[in-house]
Design a protein around this nucleic acid. Structure first.
Lengths: 113, 113, 113, 113
DNA sequence: GTGGTCTAGACCACG
DNA sequence: GTGGTCTAGACCACT
């Protein structure tokens, strides 16, 4: 009787880590245009204050978004949205976009070994 | 609390589980003011060392105390005594107290810029 | 067996972050057989003590090694070397090796949640 | 009252650079014992706020004091006064003192379980 | 004044 | 008693 019928709904019982939630929130704001492409996002500290989490969690979430090609970061300058919405599904291209943007805005940075 | 070797048959023969004893000890220290309301308790590891039990036992005991509204825990921060003795029976309100305390504690340490 | 002398001298003028140095040290010990394939490595805390760094730096270094397929980690059990030296250059296969090792050592993460 | 655009070419018009003044202030506080030997000084941000200067100026001044052997800095921990007045002229030894202090400080908080 | 590295130590989830 | 998540706050490198 109790047997759930093939859940179409995603079971929300799993709490999911904070940084995962935060990643989702940030991604939404990028996709919905709150932060426009190539515009500077709020600083890591500000994002931490906005969402009530520590800076380390912000950095972890931003790291995911960077890996996904949605944003790129420039040391000493800030964090930026990388590409327009139309390109967001093409993750592999976004990576290229990031590299180009980095060069354009400043210069290449050294990745970790 | 002395050990009674003669147990009435109605009770389980085990001399009360370890975590129950520990829960009693911790509750006593909270009620007698050893750990003041809203003050931070020793860490789970320290409590384990203090009472000579494993951390899993400590967590089980703390879980009881939390459910009873005597304490609340903040991830990454610590375990805290929730309210003065007078409020200890109102478990449901204590939950609210926890939520408020959490916000208060968060905000104290997190000034925006 | 010493390191491959294939690569010309890497310019060592950059101080290189601590976690990068640590990653190198750990990789060396894996490659030289200090920690044998499929054997359990020291815990994160022990590695921190061994190298005089914080656990977070250890985790960062282990994260790199995991991404490179040299190790895999099992929650609640430990960190393990993933594959023999002969396979270390084939990073893509190492991922498969990890999956197999998980099954061999214990079992699959059974419940699909 | 007039803006002197007639500058004597030999001397700079600025009455000693900002960081030199700051360096003097900080040195005074160290020598008069405001910050005791081996005690932790205020953070770079706090010092900037205390003296109304930017953090970059603070870092420049601290760099001088470090080179002079009056202080040493530990990444992720803080800035510390290095030695009593009697030793302040022996800059080279202060470097050794720093190294030792680092180990000592590290070991205090990092028991091998 | 940003992002980058690092420390110390808490609670959480799993075995 | 492991690895996983999270906090708070320090100094560092760059602009």
């Amino acid at each position: 009787m109790p047997k759930t019928d093939l859940l179409p709904v995603l079971l929300p019982d799993a709490p999911s880590p904070l940084y995962a939630q935060l990643t989702g929130h940030l991604r939404s704001r990028i996709l919905d245009g709150t932060w426009a492409p190539h515009s500077q996002m709020p600083s890591e500290s500000e994002l931490g204050a906005m969402f009530g989490v520590s800076r380390i969690m912000v950095r972890q979430a931003l790291g995911y978004l960077q890996k996904a090609g949605l944003i790129f970061r420039i040391h000493g300058k800030g964090t930026f949205v990388s590409r327009p919405t139309a390109f967001q599904n093409v993750a592999s291209l976004a990576g290229v976009g990031e590299a180009i943007s980095r060069v354009v805005l400043n210069r290449v940075g050294a990745g970790p070994a």
